[in-house]
Design a protein around this nucleic acid. Structure first.
Lengths: 207, 207
DNA sequence: GGTATTTTGAATCATGTGGTTCAAAACTCC
DNA sequence: GGAGTTTTGAACCACATGATTCAAAATACC
């Protein structure tokens, strides 16, 4: 029998691993990648320096773990906002609203780790991860559009691919404006308007 | 009589002031604000350390000068793309194309100093400047829409304010995707599609 | 209780970084 | 050509930062 709750051998850790990573998220989020020092992480995560290196590795490794955990959480939330049973317009608006809300959350820094800070990190692995994450987000939106066609909410010749990148680009724009201090209320209104925009019927092919 | 070409008194400078600032632009652009060290600026600008401090001040002061010069140049170019004599759709598309082109220029880092890096700088004056610059850019777009109404290119009830922020948000989205490596060709196509989107006729008020 | 095992905090070290000093160099003016 | 003026490069300083070491502390196993 394997004891599932078996404690490991030596002195127990004084911190929670995933909890410390969440705190690290806040540190990177508020200071950017290059802006954080190891001392910032030590202070923010509540983990001693030697333990930090032993458990997580150096700054780059910590950021990668933070980024992946963050992407997973945000991806799940975005999927929930997008795919819960509701009309197409509510889905798209919900997606954009979620982007705005998480970028203007009280208690967190404004903006978004993946949209605003990660793209500036000069690291091949971060880049690669970001590109995949971006593609994943777009795939989610695209899927919702296709479901909308199946359900008859939009015509079958709706330009799904085009509108998908437009939704994500608009979300990026809203998020960046959150970063520079645009108030939540303004952005929420614009999220609704953006949803309406991308659902407008395309111009009929002329001739 | 004032001698306009009078050389100043002592040893002449070995660098061109505005030229050095342009080189500094590239340094900040490619490394971000927190990522650059004074040594990076010394190497990139071709200015000795003491001269750098004497003429420009510290890193923050240099960045502010760089940002202002950059904003002025880009603002002028954007205005040119937007307001040159052409149809409304070409104007909007030209604006978005310009955003993409300057964000994917060979020889410069990808992205945009004002859209991608400045928003992350944690400085009150930078923030204030950015907000003004953003408002100024939007005002330019809005003006073009209004001219379009006057010229009869769009109906007088066209939702100018809404579409204006959408154009700028889409531009931000395209620029951020340039930053993470989306190829110019893809983005240029999307710029055209974005211009088409924001010129679609709004839904008629129902009822 | 004693031993093995793991984590922790404090101290430590080498290096990177922001910023200054100072004598020599390169000019103009007389 | 000499005096006055400004810039320059090299050296320098204090401090922040990344990373490691090591004995003490806290636990499980026997």
């Amino acid at each position: 029998m394997i004891q599932n709750t078996a404690r490991p051998r030596g002195r127990p850790r004084s911190f929670d691993e995933t909890g410390a990573l969440e705190k690290a998220t806040q540190v990177f989020w508020s200071k950017g990648y290059d802006g954080v020092t190891i001392d910032d992480l030590v202070a923010g995560m509540g983990v001693g320096r030697p333990s930090l290196y032993a458990v997580f590795g150096d700054k780059r490794a910590i950021f990668l773990r933070v980024l992946k955990a963050y992407a997973e959480r945000k991806g799940a939330s975005a999927a929930k906002a997008l795919l819960s049973p509701q009309g197409l317009r509510d889905s798209i608006a919900g997606f954009l609203r979620y982007a705005v809300e998480s970028a203007t959350e009280k208690g967190s820094a404004p903006g978004c780790l993946m949209v605003c800070v990660a793209p500036l990190v000069n690291d091949a692995e971060v880049r690669q991860f970001l590109q995949n994450a971006v593609a994943g987000g777009a795939a989610l939106v695209e899927r919702r559009f296709r479901d909308g066609i199946t359900a008859g909410e939009i015509p079958s010749d709706f330009p799904v691919a085009t509108r998908t990148t437009q939704v994500t680009d608009l979300a990026r724009g809203l998020t960046m404006r959150a970063q520079i201090g645009t108030p939540r209320k303004t952005l929420l209104k614009e999220a609704e308007e953006a949803a309406e925009l991308v659902l407008l019927p395309p111009r009929r092919a002329s001739k």
